[in-house]
Simulated scan of single mutants.
Amino acid sequence: MDRTDSRDTGDERPGEIVSPLRRTFEVGFWVAVTLVNGVANSITVLIDIRRSGLAFAAWEPAVWEFSSGLAFLALVPALLWFTRRFPLHWDTLRRHLPWHLLASVVFSSAHVLAMVAMRELAYAGMGTSYEFGDWSRGLLYEYLKDVRTYVTMVATIEGYRFVRRRLKGEARLLDAPDDVETPPGKIERPERFLVRKLGREFLVAATDIEWLQAAGNYVNLHVRGREYPLRSTIGGIEARLDPARFVRIHRSYMVNLDRVASIEPLDTGDARVLMADGSRLPCSRRYREVLRERVAGGRT
């Protein structure tokens, strides 16, 4: 998918080129989980009904289970966005956990409303009606079940992102030598970044970074077709990089001036920046003139 906007199926950000294979895997995973759970739970519930001699039609367990599963599936994009905004890592757990507790209530409420609506439509199509029962008790009962599903889904998403970061390699700033002190008022500018990938470590020169992209609590460093997440904000790393070489072009993007191929003005007043590696990045109007002056006049 060669474009700068992406539909969220995993942990991709706007501007990230997502391969069709990866997209198929991510979408297919959630669809497969929904189908397998729906089929397995429908059969199990139907067996229990037959053993208990309850007066339910054979199609009803399928409606119950698949309405619930499809409601969860519809909530995946929102959950992906929310976990990017409030990721659960050891250093963010205390700060973000209250937001997740609140989100679990919203998650369960949305699940129940969508589930009941689908059941009512299915029952109406079969010439009968569906009754959810007492809403106050029903919502509490469903929440006690849904909170476990919420925890499982969040853990799955965070686990997948953790594995992807390890496979791609995660960058960090090199610690300054103990015997070297930075003079007061002077900012220490990193010349190299340490990247850990699959148990190996190697160095990436700051000058090799082509462009940077904010991604929640991370900034993705794009280097020779590869992407290394760095635990930082875009503003934090901007203050550390050499302003003679790197320039901000968007609230979520910075570029290496040496790697800018061209700037394409847009009718909206914004611009599109074509990088030497073929990437097309957005440039906000507030940064457009500064970028043009820096590219035209050279680094200052």
Rank of each mutant, 00 (worst) to 15 (best):
60 E>W: 09
228 Y>R: 03
196 R>M: 15
286 R>L: 03
213 Q>H: 02
89 H>F: 13
122 A>I: 10
134 D>V: 13
12 E>I: 01
249 I>Q: 00
84 R>T: 13
267 D>A: 10
128 T>Q: 06
256 N>D: 09
193 F>T: 05
289 E>L: 04
270 D>P: 00
56 F>H: 07
4 T>L: 13
182 T>N: 01
91 D>W: 13
177 P>D: 01
67 S>N: 01
30 W>V: 09
273 V>T: 08
21 L>Q: 13
29 F>T: 04
289 E>Y: 09
293 E>H: 05
293 E>G: 09
63 V>P: 09
135 W>P: 13
51 R>K: 10
9 T>P: 09
220 N>F: 03
75 L>Y: 01
243 P>F: 06
131 E>I: 13
103 A>L: 11
288 R>T: 00
183 P>E: 10
275 M>D: 09
156 T>H: 03
72 F>Y: 12
8 D>S: 12
247 V>I: 13
45 V>C: 09
145 K>H: 09
61 P>D: 05
99 W>E: 12
114 A>L: 15
16 E>N: 03
203 L>C: 10
249 I>V: 08
196 R>I: 15
60 E>S: 04
277 D>V: 01
234 I>M: 12
258 D>M: 04
130 Y>W: 11
297 G>V: 08
46 L>T: 05
18 V>F: 11
52 S>Y: 11
212 L>Q: 01
121 L>Y: 13
185 G>V: 05
133 G>R: 04
109 S>Q: 10
35 L>T: 05
133 G>P: 07
112 V>N: 11
212 L>D: 07
164 R>A: 15
92 T>A: 06
80 L>A: 00
188 E>W: 08
176 A>M: 13
158 E>A: 11
199 G>I: 02
6 S>K: 05
29 F>V: 05
229 P>L: 14
119 R>P: 14
265 P>T: 05
26 E>S: 12
4 T>F: 14
280 R>Y: 06
84 R>Q: 08
158 E>S: 10
160 Y>S: 14
199 G>A: 03
1 M>G: 11
109 S>K: 08
8 D>Q: 14
6 S>P: 04
42 S>N: 00
100 H>A: 05
148 R>Y: 12
17 I>V: 15
104 S>M: 03
71 A>H: 02
12 E>A: 07
281 L>A: 09
11 D>H: 15
32 A>G: 01
288 R>G: 06
285 R>C: 09
89 H>V: 14
